[in-house]
Write a protein that binds this DNA or RNA. Structure first.
Lengths: 243, 243
DNA sequence: TCTTTTAATTTGGTCATACCAAAAGAAAGA
DNA sequence: TCTTTCTTTTGGTATGACCAAATTAAAAGA
């Protein structure tokens, strides 16, 4: 028996009927009553199920989709999604895009990346397992093989860095890497791709790898820091220091 | 002259008129045409200004408020807000709250906090200025003075950690600290407050401070890591290891 | 004249209805 | 069985109406 929303939420006067619906729907999603990947029931059905108007249904659906529990393409039925850590990060995307326009925004973001990634290489140097090192090695080789092909180099570059985020086996971190790549892409992808720089970057990757291999956190950190600060200089050369 | 939205956006068939309005409104907010802190014009005015129905206006407003560009209390006019880094983090809040319910969610989040905070103390040990150290010292003293008052101890504890996030002068980091505190509050605030534990935690803070003071990143890191892992053990004792 | 009440007006929240165009599903044809 | 039409369903948008809370204007009182 589906009740009308008033029965279990005593907030009929808060001015936000949609909130109650949001709670009930998200509960049904988490409990699996609406299974992951399946389309949400049509709006007209939901409105009679909850005893509300379509206005409120749509508001609730929009809210849930912003929360990542629904994947709503225009003109399509919303798809039920149990959000992962990526969804959490991508929820920030729109806000972040505004912050990046402010002066110093990109720098602030990039500095946090340095902070995190430095921590990651130190961790890698201390705790990386045999498989982690093997993966880094092959990523490094792929990176080396792509020095002449800037597009491919960019890809292997990202892959190498991504591995650093994989080592702690914490699913938040790969999501964070993806977020960094996405947010900084507008800057990064517009930079001129020069094979000479590719070589520099490969050398940096090599030094980082060696630091990890030698289990030397300090040298790994120093190599990574130099690498990222070099990258930042390039960004400044391209966009000026006032971004 | 305000044009109807069709004139400058060629996406009248994407099925999302609200998106265009969102863009225009957010542009007006960023440009300061709608000044920060002022209420947005009434919906009925916006609908004629953009040549759209109230349906779409409301959808756009809701979207902007989820993005943090508007602060919308029910039944009140939305207030224009230029979002800061806090807004970005709090945009994740609803998603994160779901993730924290999943098994291991809290642990994953807490581990990233350890990662970040370790990086911060290392940085502090290397780069903290005279004023930073003075601030840490007085926060430490306040913490010591509050050992008997668990509520106050909790506050000064947070304040001490917050200072670590202030040292790099990167506005993202204080926002991150606030987010950690908010997200982990459900766990943390429910833990029993024992003066004995307060003493342990103060000792840990002292060790961290000494590490920073002695400019010894490694000992500072070790002290912080022990401190946070101790905290995690407490959480596990309270909630079981399966959270 | 200035505060306090009170009445009038504005404005956000919700509902009901209608229409269109895009999707999805069903039926007919190759 | 696989396309190709043709219905039906369903999301996007527009109108218009109503209510209750907020806001503002007006009136009353100090």
């Amino acid at each position: 028996m589906t009740e009308t929303l008033m029965s279990e939420t005593s907030e009929s006067k808060t001015g936000r009927a949609a909130d109650a619906v949001v709670r009930q729907l998200s509960a049904k999603i988490q409990s699996g009553e609406y299974s992951d990947g399946a389309p949400l029931p049509p709006e007209r059905l939901l409105m009679e199920e909850f005893g509300i108007s379509r206005t409120v249904v749509r508001e609730a659906v929009q809210s849930l989709s912003k929360q990542g529990l629904l994947e709503a393409r225009p003109r399509h039925r919303p798809i039920v999604r149990k959000p992962g850590y990526d969804a959490a990060l991508s929820a920030m995307e729109s806000v972040v895009s505004h912050l990046l326009n402010d002066s110093g925004g990109v720098k602030n973001l990039f500095d946090t990346r340095i902070l995190v990634e430095v921590a990651l290489v130190r961790l890698a140097a201390q705790k990386a397992g045999r498989e982690d090192i093997a993966a880094l090695k092959s990523a490094l080789d792929a990176n080396h093989a792509a020095i002449e092909d800037s597009e491919e180099f960019y890809r292997t570059d990202r892959a190498f860095h991504a591995l650093l985020y994989d080592i702690p086996r914490n699913p938040v971190l790969p999501a964070l890497h993806k977020a960094y790549v996405t947010w900084l892409a507008p800057q990064w992808s517009q930079m001129p791709r020069l094979p000479a720089r590719n070589r520099d970057n490969y050398d940096a990757h090599l030094k980082i790898f060696n630091g990890i291999l030698m289990r030397d956190p300090d040298s790994a950190e120093e190599a990574l820091r130099a690498h990222l600060e070099y990258a930042w200089e390039q960004v400044c050369e391209t966009f000026g220091s006032d971004i």
